[in-house]
């Protein structure tokens, strides 16, 4: 465990909690892509099946359970409790265009052709693109609430910090996982445009709105 890994995990946790609290406090999921949240719930479910097969540490187990629990709680709030506020018309990204290719790729390119390993690989590939329905929704409506941008920033920062973690682990532990690294780079790159808008607009006190 190095500082990049720990801050990455905490940034990820912060993103998840920010989103849950935003929805809970405002009693509304306006501007949030339910499709992205379903994809994240699917990501955690397929990745953390090793909870049943191997114990790594108390930290590891607790974080996995928190991530999964929060992901399903978020989906529940969007599609059940505050369904009336869900902006389904703007959440029109076709998720099958992500899930099907990602499923095919995880069967083709993986470390080991076993069910758990393929599901883990699927979760890594899917996570890298799971935010696209949310970014698509923002590009469609042309704006995002400031709290939503904080959520996206923490979520993007998490994978960027993991990149530094992998550089660290490569130099000091000789550890690298090519599947995670390539997917992590793709994931981080998808946030670059948003990072730019976040720094140039949101951090200067302006609302994030895209030019028409």
């Amino acid at each position: 465990m190095n500082i990049f890994r720990l801050t990455g995990d905490l940034s990820h946790l912060a993103a998840i909690i920010i989103l849950l609290l935003k929805i809970w406090k405002s009693r509304s999921c306006a501007g949030i892509s339910g499709k992205s949240q379903i994809l994240f719930a699917l990501v955690f479910t397929t990745r953390y099946l090793d909870l049943f097969t191997s114990f790594i540490s108390l930290y590891n187990t607790c974080m996995k359970l928190i991530y999964i629990g929060c992901a399903y709680a978020t989906v529940y709030l969007i599609y059940a409790k505050f369904r009336a506020t869900y902006d389904g018309n703007h959440d029109s990204f076709r998720v099958e265009f992500l899930v099907v290719p990602v499923g095919g790729l995880s069967v083709l390119i993986n470390h080991d052709f076993s069910p758990l390993e393929i599901l883990w690989t699927f979760s890594i590939y899917l996570e890298s693109v799971a935010i696209l329905p949310q970014l698509f929704m923002i590009s469609k409506t042309g704006e995002a609430e400031t709290i939503t941008t904080h959520y996206l920033f923490c979520l993007g920062l998490y994978r960027a910090l993991y990149l530094f973690n992998w550089i660290w682990r490569f130099y000091f532990e000789g550890f690298f996982d090519m599947i995670a690294i390539v997917a992590g780079v793709v994931q981080t790159v998808l946030y670059c445009d948003f990072f730019y808008l976040y720094v140039t607009k949101v951090l200067k006190g302006k609302k994030l709105s895209l030019p028409a």
Partner: peptide
């Protein structure tokens, strides 16, 4: 490569 080792990252 970490093939075969338990995955310790989240």
């Amino acid at each position: 490569d970490n093939n075969g080792k338990p995955k310790d990252e989240l």
